[in-house]
Amino acid sequence: MALISTADPTAAGRERASLTQGRRFNGLPLIGPSVTVLLIWMIVPLAMTLWFSLQRYNLLDPTVTGFAGLDNYSYLVTDPDFWVSLGNTLILVGSVLVITVVGGTLLAVLFDQPFPGQGLARLFAVAPFFVMPTVAALIWKNLMMHPIYGVLGAVSRAFGLPAVDWFAQYPMASVVLIVSWEWLPFALLILLTAVQSLDRDQLEAARMDGAGPLAQFFHIVLPHLSRAISVVVMIETIFLLAIFAEIYVTTSGGPGNATTNLAFLIYARALLQYDVGGASAGGMVAIVLANVVAFFLVRTIARRLEV
């Protein structure tokens, strides 16, 4: 090998290229099956959803069949419920993001300070993230927000105030509260890790220069957390677009369509109205929406990482 490299660099380059190609060829049979399974896992459901969205397929009337073209999409975008559900989806996602990012940032700064019982407090703060969505919705519906048996109702009566039927009077706010309670620990975990990676010498230097706690937070801590906040926003947004269990257990999309988001609208079309074609069209719209949002969020985070 040494003789070939010294005498003929071209021959050495050819030999290195052949070795590299050999390594690539040897790795391909190992990753090929996993990549194939992954592609089938993703492409087959997507292709079936696209196919059904172009068909007339209603389970209540099996005689109505055939190619529908874009009729399902046309009916979907002209349906007022679709725009209401899209608005509810944006309200739900935006409200939960504001609550979890602001609350997670403040809690991360708080839990970074030493105090008695710090470890136990962190454990209790993170625990809601490990509660299943259905269980969390049942806890809030029956144990916390129930006007007669709930904790909030008992507190209201203790102060001489009438109990509030939260899911009837403030349905969207109730769903936002439940989902925020579930996702706040996630934001806290990410942001607390970022706060702990902050250089303490920088904070000490700012303190010696006379910077107060607020100045340190806005000029040092918050800029340091910008990348972590971007990651929290991206991950939460992708999952919050598909919120379903909390709505199904608590309000079933009501009263009326006050809490019907895009995911629940697709469920109602498919399993309550038996319109498989219309539900598939809604599913394709949801897929496009999620991918557009993910694309812009990933680009934003990539720019922040390059800085």
Rank of each mutant, 00 (worst) to 15 (best):
G150L: 04
Q55K: 06
D201C: 10
A228W: 07
V164G: 11
L110S: 12
W41F: 14
R207G: 08
Y149T: 11
Y73G: 01
R200H: 12
P171Q: 06
L50C: 13
R304L: 07
A215F: 14
S180A: 15
D275F: 01
Q55T: 04
I40S: 13
A258T: 14
F124P: 09
I148A: 12
M144C: 12
Y75V: 11
R200K: 11
V285D: 02
V195P: 00
N58Y: 09
M172S: 11
M132H: 10
L90W: 08
L38C: 08
I301K: 02
W83M: 05
P9T: 02
L19V: 11
P116S: 12
V109T: 06
A168C: 01
R304Y: 04
L184Q: 09
R14Y: 13
D165I: 06
V102M: 13
A108G: 03
T36V: 13
P255N: 10
I40D: 14
G104L: 08
Y75I: 11
Q202T: 13
L19F: 10
I220G: 07
L38D: 05
A163K: 03
N261P: 05
L50T: 09
G117K: 15
G119E: 13
Q202S: 08
S85M: 05
F129V: 05
E306Q: 15
R303D: 08
E182I: 15
V102I: 15
R122Q: 14
A281E: 00
L106E: 10
E204Y: 09
M208C: 09
L271H: 09
P185Q: 08
P80G: 03
P114M: 12
F130P: 04
Q21E: 12
A108Y: 01
L184T: 10
V176F: 15
R200I: 06
L198H: 11
G103E: 06
L59Y: 07
L59S: 09
P213M: 05
D275E: 14
F129Q: 05
N142D: 11
V77D: 05
R56Y: 12
R122P: 08
V96E: 01
L222M: 11
A270V: 00
T100K: 02
L225M: 09
E306Y: 15
F244M: 09
S156W: 06
D275H: 05
A281H: 00
F82R: 02
M144K: 00
F111V: 09
D8S: 13
N261M: 06
I4A: 10
P147T: 03
E15Y: 13
F186H: 07
I229A: 07
F82A: 03
F130R: 01
L272F: 13
P9M: 02
G13D: 11
I148N: 10
S230M: 14
D199H: 00
T89Y: 03
A163W: 03
Q55I: 03
Y57H: 07
F264V: 07
A279V: 01
V96M: 04
Q169K: 14
A163M: 05
D275M: 13
G256D: 08
A158D: 13
P223Q: 11
G277D: 03
N142T: 15
N261W: 01
R227C: 02
M144H: 04
R24A: 13
P255T: 10
D112R: 08
L143T: 06
F244K: 05
V64Y: 06
A205T: 11
V93F: 03
W41I: 12
P223K: 15
P185F: 00
L152M: 07
I301N: 12
V232K: 03
I178A: 06
M1C: 14
